[in-house]
């Protein structure tokens, strides 16, 4: 009878070069998404409080878009570009790329948390038609980003995040 042996299982796993690379970029893309969401949130709040219309909000965001390097032909597009459609600097693109980095370094719970945030912007009718809707949408994005940060804290500092191993164990127990 051959004695069973085990492999060296490391739940933390090693912090390899590629993992560090993806961790750095995960942080950068999340920070970018957070940054843009807060800019829009602030402009939208001012617009709501001053009673400004949607066009005024979009025009005021044109400067923010330009700072982020987004070329907007029509000032009216700036909100949509910052939220969803610009391929380098929109919240949506930033989160999409952050999720890609998270698949390399994160637990399934972190991937889920980022996916929830991405889906906030994918919903039918997600693009706001008024400053109030823009305010509510970015409030929701920021809340979901807070949930992402909590998972990161739990993953790296408390090791409480749900892993695929735990998901599988629960599934097998069923």
């Amino acid at each position: 009878m051959v004695e069973p042996r085990s492999i060296s299982v490391s739940p933390d796993r090693w912090l390899t070069d590629s993992r560090v690379y993806n961790l750095i970029w995960l942080g950068r893309w999340l920070e970018r998404a957070d940054n843009i969401a807060r800019v829009i949130n602030t402009f939208a709040r001012i617009a709501v409080e001053s009673g400004a219309d949607m066009l005024a909000l979009q025009q005021s965001l044109g400067n923010a878009a330009a700072i982020r390097g987004i070329r907007v032909e029509d000032a009216g597009q700036s909100l949509e570009m910052l939220l969803r459609y610009h391929e380098a600097s929109s919240i949506y693109h930033s989160l999409h790329t952050a999720r890609s980095n998270a698949t390399h370094v994160g637990t399934v719970e972190l991937i889920r948390a980022i996916s929830e945030t991405v889906m906030t912007l994918e919903r039918d009718g997600a693009m706001p038609a008024s400053p109030l809707e823009a305010l509510l949408l970015t409030n929701e994005v920021l809340e979901r980003l807070d949930a992402v940060y909590k998972v990161i804290d739990d993953s790296w500092f408390h090791q409480e995040a749900l892993s695929e191993e735990e998901v599988y164990r629960r599934f097998v127990q069923q």
């Binding site: 299982v9 796993r13 390899t16 695929e164």
Partner: peptide
């Protein structure tokens, strides 16, 4: 690749690692 490395508790590496 991600799923199995997490399931088995082994490190996921790229060639450059």
């Amino acid at each position: 690749h991600r799923y199995l490395s997490e399931l088995f508790g082994i490190t996921l590496v790229e060639g450059s690692d």
